[in-house]
């Protein structure tokens, strides 16, 4: 994909008017009445939300809007006070996080979790699911897992190549730069063959040169048939790659819709973008079309 090409947006995701809680044609995640409080503070209070399948959905909102908390609830890392939510039609209430991950929903973290003192290749191999050698009894006899481990290694090296980390494979993850760790975390997540990839601020702290390649990786996920849900503060990125945007403020969903529509809504501007929505803060380096479009206005 060349740098200036606008990615193909997926449209026609919703049924009826694009408003908070609107129905989707093919929802992957359905959230109902999920509420989480920390003491007196209501962190998340979502009435109804559907995340469309096969599209890239951005979850945006000001700091403290409850985006990461909602992420934690959806992935089983935290449990809500009330509410139900389902993934591909299966209820996830009370399911521990590792089982949620086994069902094909993988997440990354806002603070990147590279396994520092394991090699990059070992980091990758850990991602693969259903490894015979991970059972304690079979682990003792290499015959049970040697061949599978070879296959996993081939797959891991392929992904590392795609993420331009193959030269680092023998290094400890601790020696990677912050941006490379983000890439490694995303690549490791892909080792699990997910159907839903949840990225918590994939661009935070990544230098502009890497931003472009990360964006392409996210777009490639969709091309490969995966659904993406990501939290991001970088509005240009959201406009550029998201097919659908969900805006949260004070724990509630205040707006949702296609990015170019939703960012013009008054509620969104009030809640999040403020008066500076058209100012390029230098987050992206002008490679992305939305900036050029604004200049041409």
């Amino acid at each position: 994909m060349s740098n200036n090409e606008t990615p193909q947006k997926t449209t026609g995701l919703h049924i009826g008017k694009a408003e908070p809680g609107c129905k989707k044609n093919d929802p992957m995640l359905v959230i109902d009445h999920v509420k989480k409080t920390f003491g007196g503070l209501t962190a998340v209070d979502v009435e109804h939300l559907e995340i469309p399948k096969g599209a890239i959905t951005a979850l945006i909102g000001p700091n403290g809007a409850g985006k990461t908390t909602l992420f934690n609830l959806l992935t089983g890392f935290d449990s809500p006070d009330t509410g139900t939510w389902s993934f591909l039609g299966k209820s996830l209430s009370g399911i521990p996080s590792f089982k949620v991950a086994q069902m094909g929903q993988v997440r990354t973290f806002q603070l990147t979790k590279a396994l520092s003192l394991l090699t990059v290749l070992d980091n990758m191999k850990l991602g693969a699911k259903d490894q015979a050698g991970e059972s304690i009894w079979k682990a003792l006899i290499p015959g049970f897992w040697k061949k599978q481990d070879k296959d996993i290694e081939v797959k891991a090296l392929e992904l590392l190549k795609r993420f331009k980390l193959e030269e680092k494979q023998a290094d400890f993850a601790a020696s990677l730069s912050g941006g490379q760790r983000k890439l490694l975390e995303m690549a490791r997540a892909l080792m699990t063959d997910p159907v839903l990839v949840m990225l918590d601020e994939p661009m935070a702290g990544v230098n502009p040169a890497l931003t472009q390649s990360l964006l392409e990786h996210v777009l490639n996920l969709k091309k490969d048939g995966m659904t993406v849900l990501f939290v991001e503060h970088d509005m240009h990125m959201v406009r550029h790659i998201a097919d659908w945007v969900v805006v949260m403020a004070e724990g509630k969903v205040v707006a949702e819709g296609p990015p170019d529509v939703v960012m013009k809504e008054q509620a969104v501007i009030d809640a999040y973008l403020g008066a500076h929505q058209d100012t390029d803060l230098g987050v992206v380096t002008g490679r992305i079309d939305t900036i050029n479009e604004e200049k041409n206005k």
Partner: peptide, 18 residues
């Protein structure tokens, strides 16, 4: 490998379905 991964960061291992 899983055991060493847990030593490094157990949440990351959990997120990978272990």
């Amino acid at each position: 490998r899983v055991i060493k991964g847990i030593r490094e960061d157990e949440d990351a291992i959990r997120a990978l379905g272990k």
